[in-house]
Design a protein around this nucleic acid. Structure first.
Length: 909
RNA sequence: GGGAGCAUAGCUCAGCUGGUUCAGAGCAUCUGCCUUACAAGCAGAGGGUCCGCGGUUCGAACCCGUGUGCUCCCA
């Protein structure tokens, strides 16, 4: 006698109980053994962040895959961890220090700051791990890795030094993306471009006096209607505050309007500096006025033109975005204030001729959202070409498979084919400090320690005991996370160790499509470089999680639900269900709380099915062990469900292979809800007060177990709970580690019929039940009002095994087979079989006729189209024989149905 | 400006190698049920010019071209 089951499933209790049980049993820990490994490394979330819905989707997908592998004979290993998120975390720590302690970063030493940062990490770094546990993620907690762990730190430095020695890392002055708020360089990938309504300002540059004499004799013919005259040229700019950094004005060499000015000098407004007018085909004569001001320090294109024409560089901005001494005017003013001031001054000087609305694109820092400033700066870079080629090969050769391929392969290839060098230095403290050492003259060596640096310096420059200082900057976080699949197994710091040999390459990487370049491509590069092998076999890209209105979920919009709150409200299984059911592979998904409702309802459905089965068990069973009369009555139900289950299992296997988890879940959901609960359980349910056949109960428990096993990767808690409720279990018999195929169901061989035949018969049974119920409904028969059913069919044998089930499902007190139509009954035609319902109720012949006539019309139309096709000689000649055969069969079927309907109609009148 | 993807029921999406048992599912809607597991449920039902136009084909939601609309990536 089992304990009373609660009315509904209570997720909170089960979650707590089973997660700690699994941990106690150490089910999620993995050590190399003789089994095949199945390995996933988690895409490390930001250590001080929280999991948002995008993470929730990713982690759920990974958990499904890893649990499925664990139940399929693999040694499953899912490595958890987090990254240090240099910019974001440093910004948070700086903010905290100011707010809570009133400390400015510049008043702290590097060591002091790092102490605070690690304290911060210890305080908040656990949140994501707690969330992973609540979600049920079966990660190996013994393998938690953080990108600032000691070994990891060493790995990053080691790789830096190695790449430098290979000539793949260099230091140089380039135009980079500068974040004035975080005051650090960014990589190209960390800049987000957004469309902005800006303004285009038209500014006059006066032609310098001494070289302004008109010597060009074509001047007269063009001057009158052009935006330049003898004494000025007009440029259009979005950024008047950079005028002070202008070193030239550039026009198209063939532009008739300006040809006469090429080689002359113009006066830069505000600072009155004379600069040359140069010609270059880069300039688009149609844009603005066709004259371009050149500011090499603050625009990438200008920078390139500057290099080409050997122009000087005047950097008029400070790192914090204020104007520098070099600007001469507005010094110390913020760049946006300076813009206003410059406009004012230009207007006052009469040099501003026009303002125009202008749609443009501006770069924003992904981390701080500050407007990024293109800036000339000396930074460290990774040469990408060679690395990119290897990463490209890995994917084009099929070594790494991308899912869904059609969607992301092109993007991946395009980026790698057009890749630019990667700026990896960041002007921050939170991260791996660049192991470069400089003397006072700026000469440098790269070395792990100061001692080694001194030796190297001696070797390189013949300087004994130089005073060296280490580079102040740290490395881009992605420069550490690209080593992730290797260094979580100490593959860089301890090459060839047992773990890395066993687990690498990993099986699948699950991540968002937004970090395909940041991370995925670079991991493949690093893997090929250091292991000479791909880091993972499959990459599965999930879509972006959006809200109901299709907007990206973001903190600023406040439209991202809190994960723990969702779990609190619906239960972890329901949340997992909700996010997965709405996530077709690779597509963006619109997430709405209500999909968790569906998951919660599903939990309850399972729970109630359990209650029903337990009720039967508690009511006692028949004595016979096998094949009692009761069993024979319902035997078809078990036969049929076994076939359904096996069919569904192989479908689900296929879907797993294609990473179509949403579809797999739908298949299981429908198998459980529709096939098992709505059909099977109703078919085998004993009449009120009767005991259930013992063997039938055994079958039912077996089926139920298999269903739980099938569903377990998706909804681990409720399934584990039910698994244990179904039957008493020995210690250590848990669903989480139970191997698929162990549950007995598929070996029952309940019938000699083939799966297809059984399923076909099931379809007939279901169609008949549905049609008869519909007819009952239409004729206002009360659900419990019993009827007498007559069947007129050419093949009564087909109904033999299903007759008792049919009677039960349509509340027929008795069933008789007849040769002719039965008068004063309701006629229902299903296929070629005719059914007559006898009842006390008044019969509406009109409604019946309408329905039959409608059906007849459809069948006749159908038959016509089939006949037309078969009458087409070219069809019969060209189509495959089996297709033609199928059409012939359709024709025969349709004719049979039409005959049956017509006969019934004749009987009605 | 360059590239990629998408357009199927009110909504979110399936639909493999072209073949009327292929026009589907889940939500939502409507009707009837407090049937002894479940009203967070049960039993039924309705709902679509498969974005427009052209082409290939015996045959097109599916292949090709084109137009329109949306999304994303890159400059």
């Amino acid at each position: 006698m089992s304990t009373e089951l609660s009315k509904n499933f209570e997720p909170g209790i089960a979650e707590e109980k089973w997660y700690s049980h699994w941990l106690n049993k150490d089910y999620f820990s993995s050590r190399p053994d003789e089994r095949k490994p199945f390995t996933i490394v988690i895409p490390p979330p930001n250590v001080t962040g929280v999991l948002h819905m995008g993470h929730t989707l990713n982690e759920t997908v990974q958990d499904v895959l890893i649990r499925k592998a664990r139940m399929s004979g693999y040694n499953a290993c899912w490595v958890p961890g987090s990254d240090h998120a240099s910019i974001a975390t440093e910004a948070k720590v700086v903010q905290m220090l100011e707010k809570e302690k009133g400390i400015q970063k510049q008043n702290l030493s590097r060591e002091e700051f790092l102490k605070y940062a690690f304290e911060w990490k210890d305080k908040y770094g656990g949140i994501i791990y707690h969330q992973l546990k609540k979600l049920g993620c079966s990660v190996d907690w013994n393998r938690v890795t953080f990108t600032m762990d000691d070994h990891y730190y060493k790995a990053v430095i080691k790789v830096f030094i190695d790449l430098f020695n290979k000539g793949l890392i260099y230091r140089g002055a380039r135009i980079i993306n500068w974040d004035p708020q975080a005051q650090t360089a960014l990589s190209d990938e960390e800049v987000e471009y957004r469309d902005i309504q800006g303004k285009l300002y038209y500014v006059k540059y006066m032609v310098s006096g001494e070289s302004a004499e008109v010597t060009d004799n074509r001047e007269d013919s063009v001057a009158t209607h052009q935006p330049s005259s003898a004494n000025y040229i007009t440029i259009a700019t979005q950024r008047p505050e950079t005028i002070m950094g202008d070193v030239a004005v550039c026009v198209h060499p063939d532009d008739e309007r300006y040809k006469h000015l090429i080689g002359k000098k113009v006066i830069v407004p505000l600072v009155n500096r004379a600069v040359p007018v140069i010609a270059d085909e880069y300039v688009d004569p149609a844009f603005g006025t066709g004259a371009l001001k050149i500011t090499p320090a603050h625009d990438i294109n200008d920078y390139n033109l500057g290099l080409k024409h050997h122009l000087p560089i005047i950097d008029t901005l400070n790192p914090d975005g204020t104007l520098s001494e070099a600007a001469v005017v507005f010094v110390g003013m913020d760049r946006f204030e300076a813009r206003k001031a410059a406009i004012e001054k230009l207007r006052a000087d009469g040099l501003l001729t026009k303002e125009e609305e202008y749609q443009t694109r501006l770069g924003f820092s992904q981390r701080t959202n500050a407007v990024v400033e293109p800036r000339i700066s000396t930074q460290w870079f990774v040469k990408m070409r060679e690395l990119a080629d290897k990463a490209l090969d890995a994917v084009t050769s099929g070594e790494v498979k991308i899912h869904p391929e059609e969607r992301f392969l092109a993007t991946y290839k395009y980026w790698l084919e057009n890749v630019k060098d990667w700026c990896i230095s960041r002007q921050l403290w939170w991260g791996q400090r660049i192991p470069a050492w400089y003397d006072e003259d700026g000469r440098f060596v790269v070395a792990d320690t100061e001692e080694e640096a001194k030796e190297a310096f001696h070797a390189a420059f013949r300087v004994q005991d130089a005073t060296l200082t280490q580079d102040e900057d740290v490395l881009d976080t992605w420069f550490s996370s690209w080593l992730w699949p290797m260094e979580v197994f100490n593959g860089i710091t301890d090459p060839g160790n047992a773990d890395i040999r066993y687990y690498y390459p990993t099986s699948v990487l699950v991540t968002g499509q937004d970090i395909i370049f940041f991370w995925v491509a670079r991991m493949i590069m690093a893997g090929e470089e250091y292991m000479d092998e791909k880091p993972f076999e499959h990459v599965y890209f999930t879509g972006m999680v959006r809200d109901k209105q299709g907007r990206k979920m973001s903190k600023s919009l406040g439209n991202s639900p809190d994960l723990l709150d969702l779990i609190e409200r619906f239960g972890a299984d329901a949340v997992r269900f909700g996010i997965l059911i709405s996530a077709p592979a690779g597509n963006d998904l619109l997430f709405d709380d209500s999909s968790c409702d569906q998951g919660r309802n599903f939990n309850n459905k399972l729970w109630n099915a359990l209650k029903l089965v337990k009720m039967w068990e508690n009511a006692g069973t028949t004595e016979q062990e096998h094949r009692s009369e009761e069993f024979e009555k319902a035997a078809f139900a078990a036969t049929w469900f076994e076939a359904r289950l096996n069919r569904a299992k192989s479908q689900v296997e296929e879907l797993y292979k294609d990473f179509r988890l949403s579809e797999a879940l739908k298949t299981i959901y429908s198998l459980i809800w529709d096939d098992f609960c709505s059909w099977y359980l109703e078919w085998v349910k004993p009449p009120y007060g009767d005991k259930i056949d013992r063997y039938l109960l055994t079958c039912t428990l077996d089926f139920f177990e298999e269903l739980m096993q099938l569903l377990h990767p998706f909804m681990p808690f409720v399934t584990e709970e039910i698994y244990h409720q179904l039957r008493p279990r020995e210690e250590g018999d848990d669903l989480t580690i139970r191997q698929q195929g162990e549950v007995g169901g598929q070996h029952k061989k309940l019938s000699q019929l083939s799966t297809t035949e059984v399923l076909q018969r099931g379809d007939i049974l279901q169609d008949t039940i549905t049609s008869l119920r519909d007819s009952r409904n239409k004729h206002n028969l009360k659900p419990r009002e019993s009827i007498k059913l007559f069947i007129q069919t050419a093949s009564p044998a087909a109904f033999q095994s299903i007759e008792p089930l049919l009677a039960k499902q349509v509340a027929a007190s008795e069933i008789q087979f007849v040769e002719d139509a039965v008068p004063n009954t309701i006629t229902v035609v299903v296929g070629t079989h005719k059914f007559y319902i006898e009842t006390e109720q008044q019969i509406d012949a009109g409604a019946q006729r309408d329905k039959l006539e409608k059906e007849l019309e459809y069948q006749k139309g159908f038959l016509l189209s089939v006949e037309k096709k078969l009458g087409n000689e070219r069809f019969v000649q060209n189509a495959k024989p089996e297709v033609v055969e199928a059409e012939r069969k359709k024709k025969a079927d349709a004719e049979g149905k039409i005959r049956a309907i017509e006969e019934s109609l004749a009987n009605l009148s």
